[in-house]
Amino acid sequence: MFETFEHKADIGVRGIGKTIEEAFEEAAKAMFSIMFDINCIEKKEKVTLKCNGDDLEMLLVEWLNTLLAEADLRGLAFSEFRAKIEQNSLKGEAYGEKLNVKKHKAKTEVKAATYSNLKVYEDNGRWIAECIVDV
């Protein structure tokens, strides 16, 4: 499950899942949902990527920023994600297709994920990963 939340100037992304990995995957969906209608993005291409951080929070920002960079570099729009985390290192996959402004109902560009409101925590058996993104 994912959602976005309010912030004065920008917007927050929140991923919720049974595992840390799922929370990270859902947070990525939340971020791409700010840019596109992710239901309109077909899974035609797969990109694999790696990133790491000093802790889970930093790893979340690295994960989201690596996805933004890869999508922009390759001209892709992503809608599905897989993450595997071991000791603050992440191996991930992103699925999507070539960006099509009309088909994907392009909205506002996300510039970066930030350390603002950055949290990764467990709550009643659910993992929550969230931060503010700069738009």
Partner: peptide, 8 residues
């Protein structure tokens, strides 16, 4: 944007 991400 990427300079910001990298140097963060």
């Amino acid at each position: 944007h990427q300079i910001g991400m990298d140097y963060l």
